[in-house]
């Protein structure tokens, strides 16, 4: 029974990682932009949930409102960042890293000034409190909700990329920018839309994180490194790889935590990733395979 409990803990952790990394798999994986402010977009999504709850009051309604609003807030922040700074340095990844890190610090300070340095809490709705009992095992409803949310986000993104004309355009621009332009596609507009969606997914992840604990200005910094690791380990630009890597890292962390401590588990996971990338630098799912989702 312990194993099943750890399995659930691992999947739950994996789903959180996946939510954090899914947007990055677009902006970093597809577009090659190293956006260190991605974590702060999550933080913005979390504070969006906080504000919405302050306005609406009812925890259930506010959560359901905050999810799309968090997407929009994260997306707009991303759009702003892309339009002002990132698009000037598409061929300078190192500069992008530094600039977006600076933006991340600015956003943290803005959050501190607006909402105060101490963490704040967002109440979970009543229908997510407590746990579901399955065979003597208590599965917290918030965790189940996040699992489902992650699954919905993955499916929606995969469908959008594969089945809609917009998704075809995003993939076309990623694969061959000049040909896409010569085919009449505005690569600038497509870049912006891609960045909006990727950043918006960070906003959704932020809203989900409010269900797991209190939130503060540095919320994003806790997740940004893990999120990048997931995308790199999964294979750049491969949603399938991101899903597998997030799940694997979550499970690994959970099981190692069970037999050691949280810090040791984290170290072991990092070591495992480094070793894995030595053996397979291109990540789990190679870029050259044809399917994206």
């Amino acid at each position: 029974m312990d194993i099943i409990a750890q399995l659930f803990a691992g999947l739950s952790l994996g789903s959180v990682l996946l939510l954090a990394a899914l947007g990055l798999s677009l902006t970093f994986g597809q577009m090659g932009v190293i956006n260190m402010a991605h974590g702060e977009f999550m933080m913005a999504g979390a504070y969006t949930a906080f504000v919405v709850q302050g306005v609406v009051g009812d925890a259930g309604v506010s959560l359901l409102l905050a999810l799309p609003l968090g997407f929009v807030v994260g997306g707009l922040l991303g759009l702003l960042l892309e339009a002002t700074l990132i698009h000037r340095m598409y061929r300078r990844p190192l500069d992008t890293l530094l600039v977006t890190w600076g933006v991340a610090l600015v956003l943290q300070q803005v959050a501190r000034d607006v909402f105060g340095a101490p963490n704040v809490d967002v109440r979970a709705p009543a229908w997510l409190s407590g746990a579901v009992e399955i065979g003597g095992l208590a599965l917290p409803r918030t965790r189940l909700f996040i699992l489902a949310l992650a699954a919905v986000c993955v499916v929606a993104l995969a469908l959008a990329l594969r089945a809609t004309p917009l998704g075809r355009r995003i993939r076309a621009v990623v694969q061959n920018r000049d040909l896409a332009e010569a085919s009449g596609i505005s690569s600038r507009a497509t870049d912006r839309v891609t960045f909006f969606i990727g950043s918006g997914l960070a906003g959704i992840a932020g809203v989900a994180l409010t269900l797991l604990g209190s939130i503060g200005p540095t919320l994003g910094t806790n997740y940004i490194v893990d999120a990048f690791l997931v995308v790199v380990a999964g294979g750049i630009g491969q949603i399938k790889g991101t899903v597998i890597a997030a799940t694997a890292l979550g499970l690994m962390q959970a099981f190692l935590e069970y037999s050691t401590t949280a810090s040791v588990a984290k170290v072991l996971v990092f070591v495992a990733i480094v070793a894995f990338l030595q053996l397979r630098p291109q990540g789990l799912v190679s870029v050259r395979t044809r399917s994206l989702a």
Binding site: P165, R168, R169, R171, A172, Q175, N176, D178, L179, A180, S183, I185, R290, S291, L292
Partner: peptide
Amino acid sequence: SVFEELTVLQNLDI
């Protein structure tokens, strides 16, 4: 130059 990872039909659709 075609979009190699997209299908023939998707290339034309684009």
